[in-house]
Amino acid sequence: MRQKRAKAYRKLMALYSMSFGFRQPYQVLVDSEMCKAATELKIELAKQLNSVLQGDVKPMITQCCIHELYLLGKTQQPAVDLAKTFERRKCNHREPIPGEECLTSVVGETNKHRYVVATQSQPLRVKLRSIPAVPIVHVNRSVMVLEPPSDATIRSKEHTEEQALHPTGSEKQVLAGPSTSTEPPRKKKGPKGPNPLSVKKKKVDSTPKPPAKDKGKGKEKPTVGVRDAAVGEKRKRDEIDDREKVASSEQQVGDAQQDEPKRKKKRRRKAVDSTAVAAESTSIPS
């Protein structure tokens, strides 16, 4: 294939991919007429489809098209053998119908499964041109050709591009909601504060403070609450000791006062006894 033609085909498939969602491997529906033309012209159908569509392809055929080849007799046995190598596409027709009607029903009105149709039937190609987004491939003098997009395809492409430019319903609600409902509140003008550049900064003492001496290194200092509790208990103990000392001293003074008259009586008794003994000694004659 020439480089100019390959470039044009590449642009066409890019259009189908960007606008209608075609992806590789492309699903190619082949009819009975294309199988006959490929065997007669000795064309490698799968290889030619790869080069024309500029990507991987997956050839497919319906049961109705194969039935048409069987009806042609043994003369078209090579075409039947070629058709059997393709993937079978279920058309859901209990009784076989003509291949053109079968492919038209499979493609549908919108080609939602993104099929590429390879056919030699002129009436079928006319029908498919009225359906948007249907790439058509045919053989012209032993050369496989990809047809340019139809008018229906171009109109559908322009419509989708125009819709993409306008916002959707949900986007319109989001855009229309907060803008028209309320306006942002205005700030009230009030007294202004002083200019921070004109305010003097606080002076910071640059003289370093001497580090505090740690008397007990390695010992954990008690917290403020624990220290206060310990000081309170010590004060209570000192007060109790002072009271006990005062009481003991008072008791000793009282005991001493009680013992003084007894000592005086004992002294008096001793004095009386000494006078009596002296008197008796004097009264005894010698």
Rank of each mutant, 00 (worst) to 15 (best):
R88I: 03
K90V: 08
K90P: 01
H93W: 03
E95S: 14
G99F: 12
E100S: 07
C102W: 03
T104D: 01
V106N: 01
N111W: 07
H113G: 08
Y115L: 10
V116I: 15
V117T: 03
T119Y: 08
S121V: 07
P123F: 02
L124Y: 10
K127A: 08
L128W: 05
S130G: 13
S130A: 15
S130K: 14
I131S: 00
I131R: 07
P132C: 03
V134K: 01
P135Q: 05
V137Q: 06
N140L: 07
V143G: 00
V145C: 09
L146C: 04
E147Q: 13
P148K: 13
P148I: 01
I154F: 07
K157I: 07
T160Y: 12
T160P: 00
E162C: 03
G169T: 09
S170V: 14
E171L: 14
K172L: 15
K172I: 15
G177N: 06
P178W: 08
T180S: 11
T180R: 11
S181L: 15
P184L: 12
G190A: 08
K192S: 09
N195S: 14
L197M: 03
V199N: 00
V199W: 00
K201L: 11
K201T: 12
D205M: 04
T207Y: 06
P208V: 09
P210Y: 04
P210L: 06
P211Q: 10
K213S: 03
K213N: 04
K213V: 12
D214V: 15
P222S: 12
P222K: 15
R227A: 13
V231C: 04
K234P: 00
K234D: 04
R235M: 12
